[in-house]
Amino acid sequence: MTEHSLWRFSRALHRAINDRHFRDIEALIDEDVEWALYGPIDMFPFLGARQGKDAVLEVIRQLADNFRVRRFDRESIMLGVDSAASMVRYSLTALDSNKPISLRVAQFAQFRAGKLVSMRVLIDTFDLVEQALGRAIHLPKMTSVG
């Protein structure tokens, strides 16, 4: 049985982020890949939408510049023929402050001929911002709208 493309991609991504070894991940990304990791791009420039392999590799390099993956736990995972969806709990270290950051991330990946052609990632970004700041954001409680 052939290994699903997600597993190869996941190993290569973590190796790129933690060891700055980018050769494996380069080989697993399609030239025309679509990538979206939504969130406040003014605070985190590596968030946002990207098109093409070079742009995505630059995002991965920025992630490697900013974070180290200490641990990850897959809470849910679904594998289709050329697709995968997962909910993963990441424990990261922010390299500039050495602060721990804990994130729950939803990932939707599509592959073609073993290469990533689409990645959509969603994060609880309000929580991410509060953890990066190291304090709560004070806002009014929305009890009648929202």
Partner: peptide, 14 residues
């Protein structure tokens, strides 16, 4: 189980 770009959601609600 839901995950939302919650920072953006809060801004839009507010």
């Amino acid at each position: 189980r839901e995950i939302i770009d919650s920072y953006d959601l809060v801004q839009q609600v507010l």
